[in-house]
Design a binder for these strands. Structure first.
Lengths: 229, 229
DNA sequence: ACTATATTCAATAACCTTGTTGAATACAAA
DNA sequence: TTTGTATTCAACAAGGTTATTGAATATAGT
């Protein structure tokens, strides 16, 4: 192949890949991806979740759709969006890892809003998995019921964050609790751990969230767990 | 945490992550990352490799540097750039996987320039690794000597592509040859396989390139292999 | 048909990104 | 000090991206 042809080939090839990169270059779209990683959502729900006008969200969804990273299911008036491929989440995960490792600014923002999290003594996924097998841990999913039912860590119990205060009695007081929610920066898990500790429970948070657990191929479960009312 | 504070937190946090995304949103920068994955390079060498003016490359390198994805080592007149973290390559890898899976355009471009590659019967990394253990294969690194010496698949022999024709006699004719170069779209490996087959060798290409092999944690080797002159 | 609602489209202005050009800087050798 | 060389900087024009706004479209229920 001639060098000039090769240049042209590389230019076109990398041009296509850069289309993927552009999708991940907007804070708004990253937020949408994070939410969609929990399960499908209508445009309105997404707008509510990320706090933007519907038209704006719709516009970003078109960008995601043009790059074929999301799928739409239309049902009456509603358009239900979802991630078209688990690889979309993997790219976001890789970016997250890179950012955490390289950008001091990220640590600064997290510390500013969430404080020093090292005393939270977070459990990583591999460790939780081992402990799940031995059974000496209560796994607590503090996401909304709908998200829990769309998929959760196998064996996890669901107490949505805003019901936690009233339902403390449902939790066995002797077993250590590991709380998780949408992702590593989801605030609810941090706050749940703080609330549980204040009531005398032993509680820690999972470092990551449900989509990360699933993405690792660890065991998940769909629907309502039978053992918990 | 108040919902409004939470919004602000998310906005700032995802804003930081989007900085990472922006770096990967330009075809030129993706090419630079691909080259830098082979080892460190001066600005001039990069400009030569990607076929852009030096000032343009320098400008893109500043973008990479601002996001702290590359490191610079200054030595006299020269600035030697390298990837600051293996996670940079992992993001690119994840994007590549996603693009290959979702964008038909990528397949179209590859087919247009490289033809139908299915008859190339490419070997994947896991398979090659197994066969390396049993030893019934010659692994051929067709990259320039300098890149080979900076790191290669353990046991691979180096015959730079433009010396291949003259050095065919160095290759044992009975053993199957697996050729690789910089990455899955590196043209040299395809052309080497074609050339070898034309001369009667049994030859296939490795699906990916050296950086991918290393990124998987498969065995590598640095410097000149002793067994090959 | 009419109304309400979810979503998308179109237009715009503000802003950001890119390639190009030529100059500035920094180091090394003569 | 002078000269040559590698790299970076600065300025600019061309083009691309984004949030906002209001209108258009499409579907469901009345």
């Amino acid at each position: 192949m001639k060098p000039s042809t090769k240049r042209e080939f590389k230019a076109r090839l990398f041009g296509e890949f850069a289309r993927i990169g552009k999708v991940f270059a907007s804070p708004h779209r990253l937020q949408l991806i994070e939410v969609l990683a929990q399960g499908e959502r209508t445009v309105e729900q997404l707008a509510e979740d990320v706090g933007s006008p519907v038209a704006n969200v719709s516009q970003h969804l078109q960008v995601l759709r043009t790059a074929r990273l999301v799928a739409v299911r239309r049902d009456g008036l509603y358009a239900h969006y979802s991630l078209a491929d688990p690889r979309v989440f993997r790219v976001w995960q890789a970016m997250r890892d890179l950012g955490e490792a390289r950008l001091a600014e990220i640590d600064a923002v997290v510390t500013e809003y969430l404080g020093n999290r090292s005393d939270m003594d977070a459990v990583n996924a591999a460790e939780l998995r081992r402990r799940l097998k031995s059974g000496d841990v209560t796994v607590l999913d503090v996401r909304p019921r709908r998200e829990y039912e769309a998929g959760h860590i196998r064996g996890a119990r669901n107490v949505p964050f805003d019901e936690l205060a009233e339902r403390l009695r449902d939790l066995p007081p002797e077993v250590e609790i590991v709380a998780y929610c949408r992702g590593p920066y989801c605030v609810f898990a941090d706050e749940a751990v703080a609330a549980l500790r204040a009531k005398g429970y032993r509680a820690r948070r999972l470092t990551e969230g449900y989509p990360d657990w699933r993405s690792r191929g660890f065991p998940v479960e769909i629907g309502t767990a039978a053992d918990f009312k």
